Simulated assay, not measured.
Amino acid sequence: MSEFEIRDPRMGGLVLAYAQLDHLWTGGRWLEGPAYLAAGRYLVFSDIPNDRMMRYDETNGMVSVFRGPSDNSNGNTVDQEGRLVTCEHRTRRVTRTEPDGSVVSLASHYEGRRLNSPNDVVVKSDGSLWFSDPTYGIDTDYEGDAAPSELGRQCVYRLDPRTGALAAVATDRVQPNGLAFSPDETTLYVSDTGASHVADHPRSLTAYDVLPDDSLANPRTFAVLEEGFFDGLRCDVFGNVWTSAFRSARCYAPDGTHLGTLPMPERVSNLCFGGRKRNRLFITAHTSLYAIYVNTRGAIRPPARRP
Rank of each mutant, 00 (worst) to 15 (best):
G61D: 11
M62F: 12
M62I: 05
M62Y: 09
V63N: 13
V63D: 05
S64Q: 10
V65F: 08
V65Y: 11
S70I: 01
S73T: 07
S73W: 09
N74H: 09
G75R: 06
G75E: 03
T77K: 06
V78T: 11
D79H: 12
D79M: 09
D79K: 15
Q80A: 13
L84I: 10
L84N: 01
V85W: 00
E88S: 13
H89P: 01
V94K: 00
E98G: 08
P99D: 02
S102E: 06
V104S: 11
A107S: 12
H109Y: 12
E111F: 01
R114K: 07
L115G: 12
S117F: 12
S117L: 06
V122C: 13
K124C: 11
S125E: 15
G127F: 04
S128G: 11
L129M: 05
S132F: 06
D133Y: 06
D133N: 10
Y136Q: 04
D141Y: 13
D141S: 15
D141Q: 12
Y142G: 08
G144Y: 14
G144C: 15
G144N: 05
D145K: 13
D145T: 11
D145W: 08
P148Q: 10
S149Y: 04
G152T: 02
Q154I: 07
V156H: 02
V156F: 11
V156M: 03
Y157E: 04
R158C: 10
R158H: 03
R158L: 04
L159K: 02
L159W: 01
D160G: 07
D160I: 03
R162D: 14
R162K: 13
A165K: 08
L166E: 03
L166F: 10
V169W: 00
A170L: 07
T171A: 15
T171H: 13
D172R: 05
Q175P: 07
G178K: 05
G178F: 07
A180E: 00
